Structures are given as C-alpha cells and as structure tokens.
Simulated scan of single mutants.
Amino acid sequence: MIGTASRIRPALRTAVILAVGLAIAGCTAIYRNHGYVPTEEDLAKVTVGVDTRDTVAEAVGVPSVSGVLNDSGYYYVSSRLRHYGALQPKVVERQLVAISFSQSGVVQNIERFGLEDGRVIALNRRVTESSVNDKTLLRQLLGNIGNLGPGSVVSE
C-alpha cells in the first residue's frame, strides 16, 4: 500500500503541472497581420506633383483599396489583431496610407494615419420591410377577395 501511494503522488503532481502549463499556454496572445502599408523608404520614392498613378503603383505597389468616386486616391491599409484565449479578436494597431491624386492623375498629397487618428463609424443597415407578415401565398390571395371593387376591375 505504501509503495502504491508513493508512485501515485509524483504522477498526480506531473498531471497537475501539465494541466496548469496547458491552461497558461492556451491563454497566450496570438497576433495576426492583415494588409500592406508601404515603408517610409518606399514613400520617399514618390514625388508630390510629379508622379502619376502608374509610377506610384510601380514604386510602392498596387493599393489594396482605391477611391470609389473618380478614382480620387490609393489607400494602403494594414491591421494587427490580437487573439487572446476565447475572447473576441481586438485590433491593436492599424495604419493607413492615403495617396491622393489631382484631376489629371498626378500625386497631390501623401498622408499616414494610425488607429489613434480614426473614429468609430456606426453602420446603419437599412432593410426594406416586407408587407408579408408570416402569411402564406394562398392566405394573401384569399385575403384580397373582399378588397376588390367594381372600379378597380373596369377602367374607363
């Protein structure tokens, strides 16, 4: 009996240490990077007032997003997210480089923004309400029988 108990205690201690180690390892932060932002050296190759859309794409790279209205600019966006255990991922760093162009397609301005420069925009989803209120097609058709008048059938 004494020999069995002395063998169980080290095994139990090892199992507890292993469980605690796995629990701690499961709570470490995992980082994911998304997108691309050109470095300062790459942006130094772009000259305001001289370079065009094509030369910017060659020097810096193709943007991840471009301006929707009149191709007003190139936007390079990079985000770093932190996953911590079972919690929802959180954006810990975001950079945006905006290169705006004039009407003739020449570089007008280069700006760099960070997460601290941004502002939260609440999205408003506009959904068209349906006039169907859980009624079957047959119930809707039969429900309209009494609503028809002779003026709606005969036109002058």
Score class of each variant (00 low, 15 high):
residue 82 R to D: 08
residue 108 Q to V: 07
residue 135 K to L: 03
residue 53 R to K: 14
residue 151 G to K: 11
residue 141 L to W: 11
residue 50 V to D: 08
residue 1 M to K: 14
residue 142 L to H: 12
residue 92 V to G: 02
residue 148 L to G: 05
residue 152 S to N: 10
residue 88 Q to M: 07
residue 28 T to E: 09
residue 18 L to S: 15
residue 139 R to N: 12
residue 4 T to N: 13
residue 154 V to P: 09
residue 151 G to F: 10
residue 122 A to N: 15
residue 102 S to Y: 04
residue 111 E to C: 13
residue 56 V to H: 01
residue 71 D to R: 08
residue 25 A to N: 13
residue 146 G to F: 00
residue 84 Y to P: 02
residue 18 L to M: 14
residue 143 G to H: 02
residue 2 I to F: 15
residue 67 G to F: 04
residue 142 L to S: 15
residue 152 S to D: 10
residue 109 N to C: 06
residue 39 T to E: 01
residue 33 N to L: 02
residue 156 E to K: 00
residue 141 L to G: 12
residue 46 V to C: 05
residue 102 S to V: 02
residue 43 L to A: 02
residue 22 L to A: 14
residue 118 G to N: 05
residue 132 V to T: 14
residue 36 Y to M: 04
residue 5 A to C: 14
residue 137 L to T: 14
residue 121 I to D: 15
residue 67 G to L: 11
residue 146 G to C: 05
residue 92 V to K: 03
residue 85 G to W: 11
residue 94 R to W: 01
residue 9 R to N: 14
residue 68 V to A: 11
residue 36 Y to F: 08
residue 148 L to K: 09
residue 88 Q to Y: 06
residue 65 V to I: 15
residue 66 S to T: 04
residue 98 A to F: 08
residue 66 S to Q: 10
residue 113 F to G: 03
residue 60 V to P: 02
residue 30 I to V: 08
residue 27 C to Q: 11
residue 32 R to H: 08
residue 6 S to M: 12
residue 127 V to I: 08
residue 56 V to T: 10
residue 82 R to W: 09
residue 67 G to A: 11
residue 19 A to C: 15
residue 14 T to G: 08
residue 89 P to A: 06
residue 112 R to A: 03
residue 79 S to R: 04
residue 46 V to A: 02
residue 17 I to L: 15
residue 142 L to M: 13
residue 144 N to M: 08
residue 119 R to C: 03
residue 33 N to V: 00
residue 128 T to P: 06
residue 153 V to N: 09
residue 59 A to R: 04
residue 154 V to A: 00
residue 59 A to T: 04
residue 66 S to P: 02
residue 135 K to V: 00
residue 85 G to Q: 07
residue 35 G to L: 07
residue 101 F to D: 03
residue 123 L to T: 14
residue 51 D to S: 06
residue 25 A to Y: 15
residue 34 H to A: 09
residue 53 R to F: 09
residue 72 S to G: 10
residue 64 S to C: 06
residue 99 I to V: 13
residue 127 V to K: 14
residue 103 Q to M: 06
residue 109 N to P: 04
residue 70 N to C: 04
residue 121 I to M: 14
residue 121 I to W: 15
residue 97 V to D: 01
residue 64 S to F: 03
residue 104 S to A: 04
residue 66 S to R: 11
residue 156 E to W: 00
residue 13 R to L: 11
residue 72 S to N: 09
residue 44 A to H: 05
residue 16 V to P: 06
residue 15 A to L: 13
residue 6 S to N: 13
residue 119 R to T: 14
residue 25 A to H: 13
residue 96 L to Q: 01
residue 86 A to P: 08
residue 151 G to T: 01
residue 82 R to I: 08
residue 84 Y to D: 15
residue 86 A to Y: 07
residue 103 Q to L: 08
residue 35 G to M: 07
residue 62 V to M: 07
residue 27 C to Y: 11
residue 69 L to Y: 10
residue 86 A to Q: 05
residue 136 T to S: 11
residue 156 E to Y: 01
residue 26 G to K: 09
residue 11 A to P: 00
